[in-house]
């Protein structure tokens, strides 16, 4: 019981610290965001889709999306490796 409380408290402290470091006016300015500004201004012209998220996900960075689909596929294969119970057997308790 004490171990669970200690573990949860330490996780909360670590992630609160990390979140406060991240959100301390790092994401609040346009100072360093050249790539994002290019995507917003020229995304429609270069790809032809008004949805900038789709154009970034499927056109500028399509390779990462292929990687994510492979991760989904790997997860499905992995779950199949773990399939212990066949359709006809029923385990008792």
């Amino acid at each position: 019981m004490m171990k669970k409380i200690a573990f949860t408290l330490s996780l909360i402290v670590i992630f609160t610290f990390l979140f406060s470091v991240i959100s301390s006016d790092i994401f609040a300015s346009w100072k360093n965001k050249d790539v994002a500004r290019y995507y917003l201004e020229n995304g429609l012209k270069k790809t032809g889709s008004p949805n900038i998220v789709s154009s970034v996900v499927w056109d500028f960075r399509a390779f990462d999306t292929l990687g994510e689909e492979t991760v989904l596929f790997t997860a499905a294969v992995g779950i199949f490796t773990l399939m212990i119970f066949g359709p006809k057997k029923k385990k008792k308790a």
């Binding site: 032809g48 889709s49 789709s54 154009s55 499927w58 689909e69 779950i79 199949f80």
Partner: peptide
């Protein structure tokens, strides 16, 4: 309108849907 994003959305949607379907079937079985 968009050049290849239409087909990629269809294929990606089919792949994600079949992966999720297999996961749900396995969890229910």
């Amino acid at each position: 309108s968009a050049q290849q994003i239409l087909f990629l959305n269809l294929l990606g949607g089919a792949m994600a849907a079949t992966a999720l379907l297999l996961i749900i079937f396995l969890m229910v079985k």
